[in-house]
């Protein structure tokens, strides 16, 4: 009886490879988290609760997750559109367009933060038009959403793109022959097929957004209880040598992120299981 239901393979070495992977995962991912939790456990429950009861901390955590949620939603819609255009329409400069998608990946996040701030500040290129309308982007929560949208775009585009490439046009043609309208083709044939990859991309963008620091702190203005994100609180606490306070906030963020990812993964698993079973 084998625990892993191994099959004969041209490339043996499952035991070694599995062992190394497990060790690596432990060293790189699990150990730091464990250290975090151990460190937090050292502070005692009262101190932990006291740190979290601070309305400034709570507001920052709420802001971090809410803004990355909205940013992920925006990216779901527009990332999908960008991926669609990239895959489906040949146009001059497509390669350049394609390369630019990765800029948010490659750019130091501080650069992005400064660039966005100068654009959206009340005196900036876009900000000067929004300011008279009463729309405040820079130094407000809206600015955080803008920064996180920028950061998260490639995650959605790059996960949806390959799936879209593999989606046969014949599916659309088949639907059309069966009398489906364009909307019916999009909503009943194309979107359901893309849903698992779209969910993955959104989950990645969301997770990345919740932890984003560099680009946000410039545009957010960091007004306590208004536009102060949780990662900034952690850094601030560390600056004051409040290691326990910092880890307490970190553990809560870790917990929430983990639950969110589990939920999305579960959803995605359900969708994928129906479509891909045995493929």
């Amino acid at each position: 009886m084998s625990l892993f239901n191994r099959q004969y393979s041209m490339l043996p070495g499952f035991g070694l490879a599995f062992g190394v992977s497990l060790f690596w995962l432990g060293l790189i991912v699990i150990l730091p988290f464990a250290a975090l939790i151990v460190s937090t456990a050292g502070m005692g429950f009262t101190a932990f609760a006291h740190t979290l009861a601070d309305s400034r901390v709570l507001a920052s955590i709420r802001l971090s997750f809410a803004s990355s949620f909205y940013a992920a939603l925006i990216n779901a819609a527009f990332g999908l559109l960008v991926a669609w255009v990239l895959v489906r329409y040949p146009f001059p400069g497509r390669r350049l367009f394609d390369a630019m998608i990765d800029l948010p990946f490659a750019l130091p996040t501080a650069v992005a933060g400064i660039a966005l701030t100068s654009l959206y500040a009340p005196s900036g290129l876009i900000g000067q038009w929004l300011d008279p309308l009463g729309v405040k982007v820079a130094f407000a929560p809206l600015g955080i959403v803008v920064a996180l949208t920028f950061i998260g775009l490639p995650f959605v585009v790059r996960t949806v793109e390959p799936v879209l490439q593999g989606l046969e046009r014949e599916l659309e043609e088949a639907a059309s022959c069966l009398g489906a309208s364009r909307w019916q083709i999009v909503f009943r044939v194309v979107l359901p097929a893309l849903l698992p990859s779209l969910l993955t991309g959104v989950a990645l963008a969301f997770a990345r957004g919740a932890g984003e620091y560099g680009s946000v702190i410039f545009i957010a203005g960091n007004i306590p209880r208004v536009s102060e994100i949780a990662p900034l609180i952690i850094v601030a606490k560390l600056d004051q040598y409040d290691l326990h306070g910092a880890t307490a906030v970190a553990v809560v963020m870790l917990g929430i992120s983990f639950i969110c990812l589990l939920l999305i993964n579960g959803l995605q698993w359900r969708v994928a299981r129906r479509q891909g079973a045995g493929r």
Binding site: E168, E170, L171, E173, A174, A175, S176, C177, L178, G179, A180, S181, V189, P192, A193, L195, V271, R274, Q275, G276
Partner: peptide
């Protein structure tokens, strides 16, 4: 338009909707 021609079309690679 295709959707108004009332033709049934069968593709070489089936083109079944995988999520249904």
């Amino acid at each position: 338009h295709v959707s108004e021609r009332q033709v049934g079309f069968v593709f070489q690679h089936y083109a079944l909707f995988r999520h249904m």
